[in-house]
């Protein structure tokens, strides 16, 4: 079968930098010195040098963008049920209990079912997907996720013909989430996708990052990742997935529909009403880079939006 351009590139085990090397890479690089750098890279990743353009080298995404540091991915993120502070959320979320955990899949399906975390982890082959993540606030990262396409789970429960949308709900645990009872947000966090978006192979349920189980602040134990949409669509710590006939209410779209559309596709041509979305700051880089239409995944997902006016349905 011909490989589709958007598929995550299969990475053979010998191509992956071992974790102990990865985690001590700075020290290692320092020890190697600048002169040894080229030889080291060439020696470590022969496959990368020979690979065809557009495929991911280890340590980078399909566009050749370098992975964002593990410390940044896990130390800088939004999880408003804990706090609105992106840099203290990791501490506040540390005691979040994610085992036992279950995800109920119901609504317009032939086989409604509650999956335990073990069933999710062992019932679906976990694969690596290196995706760009673009936050609506104007920053971005490149993150190596472990997980599996959402369509594999949906195929098990078999959506009925009436199912048109998929509604997701996050856990809301007041005892463990400091901000859970805030009057400023209509928690629980909810998100939604059109069924064809949910069935797209790029859409995954992630269970890990950097070959580690998801840390709580990153949405443990299971979260959605939709790489061509703004980060707030990628709902964290999912407890319920419902197949529904109509467009479901979602948190940010409920708060400010004029600012956060249901689709929320990354689009440099459609500004947030209060700030531009034309550029972004890649965490770890200085300066700004241009934001890509559909976050660079337009070739893969453009057909989902044929005939739609994306400035109206943002």
């Amino acid at each position: 079968m011909e490989q589709k351009p958007y598929r995550s590139i299969p990475i053979s085990p010998e191509e992956i930098t071992p974790k102990h090397l990865y985690q001590t890479r700075r020290q290692f690089l320092k020890q190697m010195g600048i002169v040894g750098l080229g030889a080291f890279l060439a020696g470590c990743a022969p496959g990368a040098l020979e690979s065809t353009p557009g495929t991911a080298a280890p340590g980078s995404d399909a566009l050749g963008d370098a992975l964002t540091d593990y410390d940044a991915v896990t130390g800088y993120c939004n999880f408003y049920e804990f706090t609105t502070n992106k840099e203290t959320v990791d501490d506040l979320a540390q005691d979040f209990i994610t085992q036992p955990w279950s995800v109920t899949v119901d609504g317009l399906v032939e086989n409604p079912r509650t999956f335990s975390l073990d069933e999710i982890l062992s019932g679906f082959e976990q694969e690596e997907r290196i995706y760009r993540m673009r936050c609506v606030e104007g920053w971005s990262m490149v993150i190596p996720w472990q997980g599996f396409p959402l369509h594999k789970l949906l195929e098990e429960v078999q959506p009925t013909d009436e199912a048109r949308f998929v509604a997701f709900t996050s856990a809301l645990v007041p005892g463990q989430m400091e901000n859970a009872n805030s009057d400023l947000f209509p928690f629980p966090y909810r998100e939604g996708l059109r069924l064809d978006e949910a069935m797209h192979d790029l859409t995954i349920l992630a269970t890990g990052l950097y070959d580690e189980p998801l840390p709580p602040q990153n949405g443990a134990p299971v979260r959605l990742v939709v790489p061509w949409k703004y980060g707030f669509k990628s709902i964290k710590s999912i407890v319920r997935i419902s197949l529904v006939p109509d467009q479901p209410p979602t948190l940010w779209n409920t708060i400010a529909p004029q600012e956060y559309g249901f689709y929320a596709n990354v689009n440099p041509n459609v500004d947030h009403p209060r700030w531009s979305q034309a550029t972004e700051r890649r965490i770890g880089e200085t300066g700004r880079r241009e934001t890509l239409f559909m976050n660079g995944y337009a070739e893969a997902v453009g057909s989902l939006y044929e005939g739609m006016d994306l400035t109206e349905q943002y």
């Binding site: 609105t84 609506v136 606030e137 009057d183 400023l184 947000f185 209509p186 708060i255 600012e259």
Partner: peptide
Amino acid sequence: LLAVKGDLFSLQGAYT
């Protein structure tokens, strides 16, 4: 007030 994410008129957002 305009710098934070949310909706001022319904006071939903990071407005503290």
